[in-house]
Amino acid sequence: MKTIVFIPARYASTRYPGKPLATLGLPDGSRKSLIQMSWEAASRIRGVDAVYVATDDDRIAGAARDFGAEVVMTSQECANGTERCADALARSGLSADLVVNFQGDAPLTPPWFVEALIDAMQADPSIPMATPVLRCDLTTYQNFVEDRRNGRVGGTTAVFGTTGRALYFSKEVIPFVDPAKLPDPVPVFHHVGVYAYRPDALASYVAAPQTPLEQLEGLEQLRFLETGTPVHCVEVDARGRVFWELNNPTDVPRIEAALKSLDAQ
């Protein structure tokens, strides 16, 4: 099964302009851009045929080529990463059985998260797309709650049925858990913003207009749910590693601390 990875990256982020080129401090004292760290993380995934940075910005493209990445230039009209992946696939003329959308703001994403998606879709050809979910420990759950309490949009939570089929995704912390009865791990699932799609699912997605819940929540995956395309959630295990995306500038210290912890293991 031929699998290619696109890392969609745009400069004009509302919450964090220029985010792909923001640098993070590494344990050895050096600094590296977010897009380079994400590309290096994606390059460690087993069973992938190629990894490309997909962007509409010459600054990001230039930086990516400088550290050795292949780049596909995309339209400035792409509304989200899924549209950018679809556009990159169409413009590049590449063929693939699976397309992976690997977020450029999540350098802490372990390769086995994506490998689990690929395995699930190989095992069940009826799955049009899949995405990982990670059960929250107390620290991650408290980070979610703290962000919302302070008016920040942090990570996304996912609710899914017994077969793994997604019911909803939200930037609110769902489902509600009584704070007086918090177990550890918490029965709240952190949605890891990585997707694996079959090409026909991507084509159907871009053929549909933006949907109401997608626009309200600002979550691209809701268009699949609202138009009737099943989204399969694959529960993954962090294996003791901290996972968090860089959604806001305040997330930089969290990720740098996680990198130091990872280096010490």
Rank of each mutant, 00 (worst) to 15 (best):
E235N: 02
Q221M: 11
G81N: 11
F176A: 15
T163M: 06
T140V: 09
I35Q: 05
V177L: 03
A116T: 05
R65L: 11
Q103I: 10
V177Y: 04
D66V: 09
P199I: 09
V242Q: 12
E70I: 02
T139W: 12
V51E: 00
P175M: 02
T162K: 11
G68M: 12
M37G: 08
E220V: 11
E235G: 00
D49Q: 11
G62M: 08
L98S: 03
D56K: 04
R135Q: 15
V236E: 07
D49N: 14
A96F: 04
T131E: 03
T162M: 09
K2E: 10
S33Y: 00
I127T: 04
D237F: 05
Q265S: 15
S204F: 04
G164N: 10
E172V: 10
K171L: 11
A90G: 12
V234K: 15
Q221T: 13
L246W: 03
F189P: 01
C136P: 01
G155V: 05
V53S: 04
I45F: 02
P110C: 02
A61F: 05
Y16N: 14
Q215T: 14
C85W: 01
D137N: 13
I7T: 01
S75I: 06
Y11S: 15
S33W: 00
R198D: 07
C136M: 14
L98C: 05
T156V: 15
A130Y: 01
L222S: 10
F224T: 01
P125A: 15
N80A: 03
P20M: 10
A201I: 00
P187A: 04
A158K: 02
K260G: 14
M1G: 11
D251T: 07
V72F: 06
L138M: 12
A208R: 13
F113E: 06
I174E: 10
Q36M: 04
A9G: 09
E245G: 12
V99S: 06
R46C: 10
D263S: 15
T14K: 12
L202G: 10
N247P: 06
K19T: 07
S75H: 05
P199Y: 02
V234M: 14
D57V: 13
R65I: 12
V133R: 08
V99L: 13
E40R: 03
Q221D: 12
M73E: 13
E214R: 12
A166P: 09
A123F: 03
G104L: 06
Y16S: 14
A88M: 05
N143V: 08
A41D: 10
F144A: 01
E77K: 14
H191G: 06
L213I: 10
E146N: 09
Y52G: 00
L34I: 14
Q36K: 07
F224S: 03
Q215C: 10
V188W: 09
A42H: 03
G18E: 08
V133I: 10
L225I: 09
Q142I: 03
T74C: 15
P230C: 07
D237I: 06
M129T: 15
F169W: 09
M73W: 07
E77P: 03
R165V: 13
T162A: 13
V186S: 05
G240N: 08
P185H: 06
S33E: 00
V51S: 03
L259W: 00
F243I: 11
A63D: 12
A69W: 01
P249C: 05
C85T: 01
A180R: 13
V114I: 14
F189I: 05
G104P: 02
V5P: 01
P187H: 05
